[in-house]
Amino acid sequence: MMQSAKISVQDFSLYYGAFHALKKISLGFPPRSLTALVGPSGCGKSTLLRSLNRMNDLIAGVRVEGRVSLEGSNIYDPDVDVVPLRKKVGMVFQRPNPFPMSIFENIAYGPRVHGEKKRSRLQDIVEQSLKSAALWDEVKDRLDSPALKLSGGQQQRLCIARLLAVEPEVLLMDEPCSALDPIATEKVEELVMDLKKKYTIVVVTHNIAQAARISDYLAFFYLGEMIESGVTRQLLTNPTKHQTEDYLTGRFG
């Protein structure tokens, strides 16, 4: 799993001030597959996710040790620029967070900040991205209306489309369905199942059933440590560690 990984962490530790939030994590994320990070709240799964595109840099007092390798280069090297990094490793957040702009402007935002100026090219990108995010048919007649008028589920798919428009290689998703109703959740899950044919996806979820439905690989976290990881079906049916078993059987979290 390590060798073929698109992105991987090695002996990775993270501190918030004195608090040791991640303890020597080593884990690889294979290309064109979906890895789910699960565990009770506060276990460090979201922190690990946000370490993969250095969104943790925005928090004061964060310190890291170890490596995060993206195709062989350590993203925490001093000569790494977080801007191109985040273009390659994109993120979808827990709460849908479209900009207060039109649907079109939301999707065009990414390509624009990366230098695309041609209107015709932007129109193509917007259409392609919305189609990839399975939202095109619902919004094609109102691309100029405000994105905030969309429903929660549509907003989240819009955020995914917005991300796809910058042509990322890795998609990080932080509990992308936790703010959505069951029907919207189903749509986003369908979309994610489709996207993992093309992208390396890492999803944080507290919903084991969801992880079982959508993920190929699973990693279980507890109190800042990675307890175990493996192929989803095997790990769910045959956990080797008692903490994993306790969590899966609902004894805590």
Binding site: L70, S73, I75, D79, V80, D81, P84, G115
Partner: peptide, 18 residues
């Protein structure tokens, strides 16, 4: 530089950061 940057696939710092 800033026009060319999107096509280069590197995460390392480029002069555009100036």
């Amino acid at each position: 530089n800033s026009v060319e940057t999107p096509s280069t696939h590197t995460i390392h710092k480029d002069p555009g950061a100036r």
